[in-house]
């Protein structure tokens, strides 16, 4: 059951990324390039994706997950250093290559050596993330 939902979700996600054009790095860089040839496509993708999710979050109030277990707890209200620094680093990398984790996997089959280099580097970055996180936490005393 869980595997079925995972596969269905992954397949829909891959289809959506592909059809929306988000595997095209020009569209992502075009969205971020406000001072160049600005491309608004990403806003439509984001908006389109948020709508079904808003309905889904509302539905979580009156049901349990179909495959059992619990829904995620309410989001934490506090911000922290990791969230801000991590998001800034992610945004820089996202702009440099025009790829983020989802589309980089969705385009692996046709992205050539460039896509492979990006995904492998991303994996290395993820491997180092726990030690970077530990260093970041020990650098400045916690607020």
């Amino acid at each position: 059951m869980r595997l079925f939902f995972s596969l269905l979700s992954g397949a829909l996600f891959g289809a959506g990324l592909y059809i929306s054009g988000m595997t095209d790095t020009n569209k992502v860089q075009g969205w971020l390039d406000v001072f160049g040839a600005w491309d608004p496509t990403l806003a439509f993708v984001m908006g389109g994706a948020i709508l079904p999710m808003m309905v889904a979050w509302r539905m979580t109030r009156s049901m349990r997950p179909i495959a059992g277990g619990q829904f995620p707890p309410a989001p934490m209200p506090e911000l922290d250093r990791r969230l801000i620094i991590g998001s800034v680093l992610f945004g820089m990398g996202w702009a440099l290559a025009g790829l983020c984790p989802g589309p980089s996997i969705a385009s692996l089959s046709f992205g050539g050596i460039e896509g492979l280099v990006f995904v492998l580097s991303m994996g290395v970055g993820m491997l180092f993330a726990p030690s970077v996180r530990a260093r970041l936490d020990s650098m400045v005393p916690a607020e």
């Binding site: 680093l89 820089m92 991303m122 290395v124 970055g125 996180r133």
Partner: peptide, 12 residues
Amino acid sequence: AGLLVGVGTRLA
């Protein structure tokens, strides 16, 4: 870019 995306998304 890959390194930044990898580290950044996991930190955030």
